[in-house]
């Protein structure tokens, strides 16, 4: 069972625990309302590891300000769970959603799994989709009336980054650029940015979102697809 050791509204300046120096850093795009709730599972990876392992977690709002930190001592004989809602009350709302970057530093004795759920559905989201070293990454997007896509981008670095998104739809390649502050996140409604590409009733258009960072930085990416009825986003799935 995850034991909450410390939780505070202020960012710690350093992570001073020596056991955490050889650690793995993981980055998750997480959300708490109004459409989804995020939860993080901490799954033990082997029986040979110590009885407990320490996790250091930092939550950053969309502008990259740390609004919550905590340390968790997780028993390695049982799967732990962190429900993010209780930690995200201080998170600002951007684009109609309360969403953030969760950075987790741990010893590698655990596998972290991010699950989101809404009223009707739950799914797991990968934290390993990224564009790296300035090389573009392409994500498939099928455009269709009544469907919408939420594209989430995390800047895990200490520098602001300019993100270029090109929608490759046949011979047309419209581009949208967004600047994300250090440690910040953005969500982009694909259909609202590239409105003119919405196909007619009953038709669909296979397109690709080509994403790259202007300055060789790493970006973490996630894409959720939903159906939209009267402004409500109902989850259909994501990148797992």
């Amino acid at each position: 069972m995850a034991e909450l050791i410390r939780e505070s509204g202020e960012r710690k300046e350093t992570m001073e625990n020596p056991d955490l120096k050889r650690l793995r850093n993981e980055h998750f795009w997480v959300s708490s309302g109004p459409f989804f709730e995020s939860a993080l599972f901490m799954v033990p990876t082997s029986s040979g590891c110590p009885a407990t392992t320490l996790l250091q977690c930092e939550l950053y709002n969309t502008e990259g300000e740390c609004f919550n930190t905590l340390e968790i001592e997780q028993a390695t004989n049982q799967t732990g769970l962190l429900e993010l809602a209780q930690l995200m009350e201080a998170c600002t709302v951007e684009s109609g959603m309360r969403h953030a970057q969760l950075k987790v530093r741990h010893s590698g004795d655990l596998t972290m799994l991010h699950r989101i759920h809404c009223r009707q559905r739950a799914c797991f989201l990968s934290s390993e989709i990224f564009a790296d070293r300035g090389e573009p990454f392409a994500i498939p997007v099928e455009l269709e009336q009544g469907r919408s896509h939420i594209f989430a981008v995390i800047n895990p670095e200490q520098n602001a980054v300019t993100v270029r998104m090109k929608l490759l739809a046949g011979k047309r390649k419209p581009e949208h650029t967004v600047v994300i502050p250090p440690n910040g996140t953005r969500i982009i409604g694909v259909e609202s940015i590239f409105r003119e590409f919405q196909p007619g009733e009953g038709k669909s258009l296979q397109a690709y979102l080509r994403v790259s960072a202007a300055n060789d930085q790493r970006l973490f990416l996630q894409l959720l697809e939903g159906s939209e009825r009267s402004g409500e986003f109902s989850l259909l799935g994501g990148l797992s």
Partner: peptide, 19 residues
């Protein structure tokens, strides 16, 4: 070797994309 691939399974009410 740096190429990427996604498999997409889709019906009217759900979709999953995985590597």
């Amino acid at each position: 070797s740096r190429s990427n691939c996604f498999v997409e399974l889709r019906n009217k009410s759900a979709v999953t994309k995985f590597r």
